[in-house]
Design a protein around this nucleic acid. Sequence first.
DNA 1: ATGAAAGCGCTAACAT
DNA 2: ATGTTAGCGCTTTCAT
Lengths: 333, 333
Amino acid sequence: MMTIKDVAEKAKVSTATVSRVINNKTEGITEEMRRHVQKVIDEMGYTPSGLARGMVTKKTYTIGLVIQNICNPFFPKMVSGVESIAYKNGYMVLLCNTDENIEREKNYVSILREKRVDGIIITVSNGKDKEYISNLTAGNIPFVFLDEIAEDVNCVCVDNESGAYKATTHLIELGHKNIACLSGPDTSITNLQRVKGYRKALEEANLPIREELILKGTYKADSGFKNTENILNRYNDVTAIFCANDFNALGAYEAAMAHGKKVPEDISIVGFDDILDIPANNFAFTSVSQPTYEMGQEAAKMLIDIIDKKELKDEVVSFQPNLIVRDSTSTPK
Amino acid sequence: MMTIKDVAEKAKVSTATVSRVINNKTEGITEEMRRHVQKVIDEMGYTPSGLARGMVTKKTYTIGLVIQNICNPFFPKMVSGVESIAYKNGYMVLLCNTDENIEREKNYVSILREKRVDGIIITVSNGKDKEYISNLTAGNIPFVFLDEIAEDVNCVCVDNESGAYKATTHLIELGHKNIACLSGPDTSITNLQRVKGYRKALEEANLPIREELILKGTYKADSGFKNTENILNRYNDVTAIFCANDFNALGAYEAAMAHGKKVPEDISIVGFDDILDIPANNFAFTSVSQPTYEMGQEAAKMLIDIIDKKELKDEVVSFQPNLIVRDSTSTPK
DNA sequence: ATGAAAGCGCTAACAT
DNA sequence: ATGTTAGCGCTTTCAT
């Protein structure tokens, strides 16, 4: 591998001069010299070492992006949003898939530290564990939390409560009175906020909150399936289900079908995240949509801002989610 | 930021000893000393610098992954496959989104060189441009081409010809005789192979190849839409369309609808890539599915193999695609 | 078993 | 305007 020294020798100049050229320094170098050195660089096909440069400048122009699972359709746009802003600002992104595994999450963050990334964007799986969060953010690396919220850190998120409120209110306005709620994991603040929004909507509509209709679960389809089966077996007055995310909605849909119930004729289902939005289908879910691309962009902007200004300000940017009404909700029979 | 020197001083040992501990060297160090140093490291919360290490070892344990667009549902699983194998082997992946923009592709590769990645996995947009390819792979960085094929390089791909052959044969077996072919960009070898498979199927079935039914296009939905409109306007004997990818199929579907034709009753459509496979829908496309996760894994394995053995062998690993018959194909009326 | 010191390829401060 | 040189934080010989 060629070095700056090789170039300097070939061009019969000092390494400092070569350095001035590859870094586009304007002062202290004549146009003629610049052209001369550049020519040698091009001829030799020299590429400076980012490692060496990073060592002395203390900057790597690399950020880490820790996400749960790129295969979950919720994330690609977010990743793309991050990448687009990063690229525009000269940064590259190291992709870290955690599979919602806390150990892997920790491990990745530690490797990112070793790699001396300039900052980290992370979608944590457990925003409630304060000790965990503070261990994560220990050290002087800028952090931005994306999607999931945590306290005392910079966050880009969506107003989950408002989203859930909109979804539930939609069901209420359609005429539903007995609405079940399939919640996600209670380690997730996001989920807690969604349940809160569900409750708020019922309260404001003066509908009773039936605790037995609020089921704990996970963000997976099998959880939605099981919980819906339970609901359907026990309470035949339930005509609608608010799901904490679309995988739950998918499970709910399948359980309803298995139960001989039609969606939306017999039972209405609202999801959250809007990841089931492939066009050209006859049937699509009503769901709360998040502007994931913009959220990714915002997170990257915020991170780069912090990196540049080196100030951590514990800011929270909250996006408004959007209820998209489609085919899985209708008035009750 | 702490350095190995700080640790050495605190532990009253040399930096060499600390280095032995952080690298888990077994020889030349007593268990007692290891424990002592490790304790100091833990207390101080020291994280070694990967940059400094990389400079001397000439290894970064980082690979670059250059893909067209993570938002295209075809790619996330591929990325995930790459990431899973990389992680297992101690590598991280730098994600590079190119938007099929050749300039951006080149630029990213050049940045990856600067970062001294150990290798690059790339899904090029133009496998036919030999000069471009050889410029890309110039230098001693190991390359593996994924999805799209190029000559004289290590490749992981799918047998596109066979996939197209299966898809077209499926239509023929259903009884279709006049089958159009919406092809993708002719800069893509992948696309050329798919068209080849289409032709082969017709030939083997002794069906005439009507060149006017083979339309050039891109991999986007609007191309499929326009081409289908043309077909429908001119040739009303066409009862089936083979599409070079699913976006084309989507466009074809919409054009058919706009034309008052029902799918599959009036016209059958086969896609390629199987990216429209969201469950719980009443309608889904018949498509040729690629094992993208496995392909990603294989590419990562191959790359790490090359990195370890430092031998470039111009190997081509070809996966068999699978025709998934769903609701967009049936016998002609 | 442990330590001293050279060197990886750059940048930046200081000389010239 | 250009050059000299001291690090940046590690690993790796080579001594001891």
